[in-house]
Amino acid sequence: MNVPGDKDRATLRKAVFGLPEIDYKEWYDRVGAQIGWDFGGIRCRVENAAWDFYEVVAKYCDGRTVLLDIGCGGGEKLIGLAAKVFLLIGIDASAAMIQAAQNNLLQTGLANVRFFQMRAQGLMFPDGFFQCVSCRHCSFDAGEVARVLAKDGVFLTQQVSEGDKLNIKRAFGRGQNYGQPDGTQKAAYERELKQAGFREVQALEYDAAEYYQTAGDLLFLLKHAPIVPDFGEVPGDWEIFRRLVAEFQTGKGIYTNARRYLFIARK
């Protein structure tokens, strides 16, 4: 598949996020996949979110902070923290994500940001190297995080609860952690953090409303996020998607929920 240039990408984005009532599967197969991992154009209105994760992280940073972000992805939001810290390091297990982050970094001219391909379960940094570690919607190893954090350092992680996107999971009869009691993973992570030696573990959570402006916005999310495993590959998925859009269409957009929890843990 040819990679689209900037003008082609702009045309594709207009086609994607202004998607009319068409054959969704045919559209995605022909056009949607070419946009790759660029989530920036998804139009989604969020109501009643109790915090913005990276704004919370910024409160624990200053000009002396060396910050590690686990699961940085393309680094778009993380780069915004560069002015708040002395050094910012982002890691991701995906080579494609790190390449995207490097490309995004080149456009900024920032000198205090580094990106590396690395697994969260094997952090290749010295003991006590970081004053702050963040992790958004990515698995982590509590022991490794504790090892690389300096004394009195802070670990912040936002994760997706089992009750997230519940109407979508129910429609398809499958989904990320579908069927597990809400709070199962949260309780397991809290135990791991305490066993790793974190002396203070604060937990917060919210359940916000999300309204995706068009079917194209929601479709792009489902094809690029692990909300519904193998979305579009299971017989009947496209018809279920049509019914879902019709049932949850509101004046604000297509409704679903975003259920999140946040740990703030001090070593």
Rank of each mutant, 00 (worst) to 15 (best):
D237Y: 01
I240T: 14
G74D: 14
E190H: 00
A82V: 08
Y24H: 07
R114P: 00
Q131I: 06
H137N: 14
A101E: 03
L19C: 07
L105H: 04
G73F: 04
A93C: 03
L110C: 12
G216Q: 06
A93T: 07
S94K: 08
I240K: 15
L68S: 03
S161I: 05
V245H: 03
G32D: 11
G90M: 07
L110G: 00
A111Y: 02
M118Y: 06
R259M: 12
E205T: 03
G74Q: 07
E192N: 13
D23H: 02
L110D: 06
F86Q: 14
L221M: 15
Q117G: 03
E26Y: 02
L149T: 08
K84L: 10
R13T: 12
L156P: 00
C135H: 02
L88I: 06
G71C: 04
Q185H: 11
A225K: 11
L106C: 06
H224F: 00
K267S: 07
A208W: 08
G153A: 06
V46E: 15
Y212S: 00
L105A: 01
Y54H: 09
Q121L: 12
L193D: 07
C132M: 14
N103Y: 03
E210M: 13
P235I: 11
G183A: 04
F140S: 06
N112I: 04
G175P: 07
F39S: 03
A187P: 00
G73E: 05
D52M: 05
I91G: 02
P181I: 13
F116S: 05
Y261S: 01
H137G: 04
A246L: 06
R9M: 15
N48H: 14
R43L: 15
I70Q: 00
P226H: 12
F115L: 12
Y211I: 08
G253V: 09
R119I: 09
E144I: 10
A203C: 15
T157W: 01
R170A: 10
L244M: 05
L222S: 05
G173S: 12
G5Y: 03
W51F: 12
A142K: 03
G32W: 03
I35H: 06
A209I: 02
L222Q: 07
A15M: 15
G251N: 05
L87G: 01
A15T: 03
